[in-house]
Simulated assay, not measured.
Amino acid sequence: MCSIGELAQSAGVTVKTVRFYSDRGLLPEACRSAGGHRRYGPEAADRLRLIRSLRALGLPVPDVRRVLDEEAAGERALEDAVAGQLREVASGLKALRWREAGLRLVQECPPGERAERLRLVGAVTAAPSTDVLVRFWRAWLPARMPAGAAAQFLEAAVPQPPDEPAPGQVLAFARLCALVAAPCTGGAPPQPHAHHEAGARGAAVLYGGLAEAYELAAVALRRNGAPQPGEALDCFVAAYASAYGTRDSAGFRRRLAGQLGSDPRLDRYWELVAEVVTPPGGRPEPTAGVAHDWLLAALTAPAAAPAAAPAGRGSGAG
């Protein structure tokens, strides 16, 4: 047996620290002396060292208690607690990197632009959130669109902020958030024609087909290919035909080209998305908006008549 002072000295901590852990049940005392002083058994020193190690890793007292209580039963309490702390550390590091890039953005810009950049960057949290982008698209999509289809669309349309951003990426993300947060004329985002014609369930079919068409168009875009008829365009038209409940034909393509040409444009959104996701010196990946524009240009090309008349799979995000 040892006293509280002897235990504290052996572990290199203060008596106050030992008493703190004892009072919270992390370091049980073996007994009390005749004078009411705490006495600890030989295992207390190892337990105290383990407690200090867990606390040094940042584990809060409740997690330390779970680790100590479940250690003998072979539970995964320690693994889970450490994993949780790692997630917190990663989140904190990302916030610091965004803060650093934001500071560099202000430091390196011309004096005449600092006020605007301070306003833009100040509106973005240190750990950037995409909530404002998600709200924008949810207001833009049909209200009763199936949840799974809406989630798939949001995954493609909402860029994830990079963990280690360059100042330019921070500026692009701040501008993107400011763009979608600006009030729309009439109080609601303008809707493409397809949302009215296809309805909520038709829109789900439409966006599922468009995702495939955009991927096919992205292949040509990476090769710097000019817009032209082919598999990507056929898939693009088929998505609309399926959503509208009709068939692909030369007449349908002419009507579709007219509709898409008059739909509201979101070009600035996609330009900023490309800046957010492209690291400095990297080659921009084709966004859904860029792929949509490529396909629309292919649709309006002179030789855009269908090679066949496939039954389609089911508005563009251009």
Rank of each mutant, 00 (worst) to 15 (best):
Y240Q: 11
F252G: 12
T17R: 12
R19I: 15
L78D: 00
A232C: 11
C2A: 10
C31P: 10
A217Q: 08
T14N: 07
L141I: 01
G186L: 10
D263V: 09
R138G: 02
T14Y: 01
T130Y: 04
L272G: 09
A226W: 08
V158D: 02
H196R: 15
L295T: 06
L59Q: 02
P264W: 01
A101V: 05
L171R: 06
I4D: 01
A101T: 03
G230D: 13
P229D: 13
V158E: 05
A309I: 09
E75K: 08
G281A: 14
C2K: 12
A81V: 12
P60G: 09
A178Y: 00
A44E: 02
A139F: 07
P28D: 10
V106Y: 00
R99V: 00
R268L: 12
Q9I: 05
A317V: 14
A243T: 02
L68V: 07
F20S: 09
L133N: 09
R255W: 11
L96P: 04
L216V: 06
V18I: 15
S10L: 15
L272M: 10
L210R: 02
A174R: 00
A257I: 05
T14I: 03
D293T: 10
Q107W: 07
L103S: 08
D293Y: 01
G187Q: 07
E197R: 14
L179R: 10
D234F: 06
S53E: 13
P310E: 07
L48C: 10
A178D: 07
V13W: 05
